[in-house]
């Protein structure tokens, strides 16, 4: 709307010159996020199933992951540096630890929300415990689990930017550069692309979720019919 001001803030020529770097950082951003959420899920899944089956372990597990979640990211990275240095490992350990609480809470909530009558009927028909978990409980918990994956992904995409401070960062590289050089264009490019990436990732995951849960759509269509 206010063309001169926008023009002053955004240096389009610079943006044009940086397209290659933007591509590189974008790829790194996606990689850091995918690894963090992937590893986070691999760790969270067995813990969540365990906490679901053994209720008394739920509180301690969420307490520990809750503390990890609460520690500011920069502090966590700093505390890791003496052990893992300025490496991708440091970044990933930090990023993964933030996904745990979100993923575990959602997986457990999804499993807990599976209707008792469906489980009873499955047991009564002769499903084994493992069969109930894999072909009844997990498919039915999928929408809530996927919601957790989406939140974890969006949160991680935001947190990746902070890893710029330890030499990684994906698009956070531009944010840091904007801060250091008092150059708003770089910060805006980094922040806007990071938000865009989060929106796109969220949308894609939503599509995956729709594809994996056709029954939910059928019920919804009926509800609105």
């Amino acid at each position: 709307m206010n063309q001169p001001v926008i023009g002053a803030i955004l240096d389009w020529d610079w943006v044009g010159r940086q397209l290659d770097t933007i591509g590189v950082q974008l790829v790194e951003h996606v990689q850091l996020t995918a690894i963090a959420v992937g590893v986070g899920f691999v760790i969270s899944f067995p813990l969540a199933v365990f906490a679901y089956r053994h209720k008394r372990f739920y509180a301690p597990i969420t307490w520990v992951t809750g503390v990890l979640y609460t520690i500011p990211s920069l502090a966590l990275f700093i505390l890791l540096i003496p052990y893992t240095g300025l490496s991708t490992a440091t970044a990933e350990i930090g990023l993964v630890s933030y996904t745990l609480l979100i993923l575990i809470r959602n997986i457990v909530a999804g499993l807990r929300a599976v209707p008792a009558d469906v489980k009873e009927a499955a047991e009564g028909m002769g499903y084994t415990r493992r069969q109930i978990l894999w072909s009844v409980e997990l498919p039915l918990a999928l929408p809530v689990i996927m919601a957790g994956v989406r939140i974890a992904t969006v949160t991680t995409i935001g947190l990746v930017t902070v890893t710029a401070l330890i030499g990684k960062g994906g698009l956070g590289f531009f944010i840091l550069r904007g801060l250091r050089d008092f150059f708003p264009t770089a910060s805006i490019v980094g922040a806007v692309l990071s938000v865009a990436l989060a929106v796109v990732a969220d949308g894609l995951l939503l599509l995956v979720q729709r594809f994996l849960t056709p029954w939910a759509r059928a019920v919804k269509v009926r509800a609105f019919a």
Partner: peptide
């Protein structure tokens, strides 16, 4: 588990697998 597979079972809330 084997026993249950050989006995029909119907409950009030039916418990059809929604998916």
């Amino acid at each position: 588990v084997q026993l249950r597979r050989g006995i029909g079972y119907v409950i009030q809330s039916i418990g059809l697998l929604p998916h």
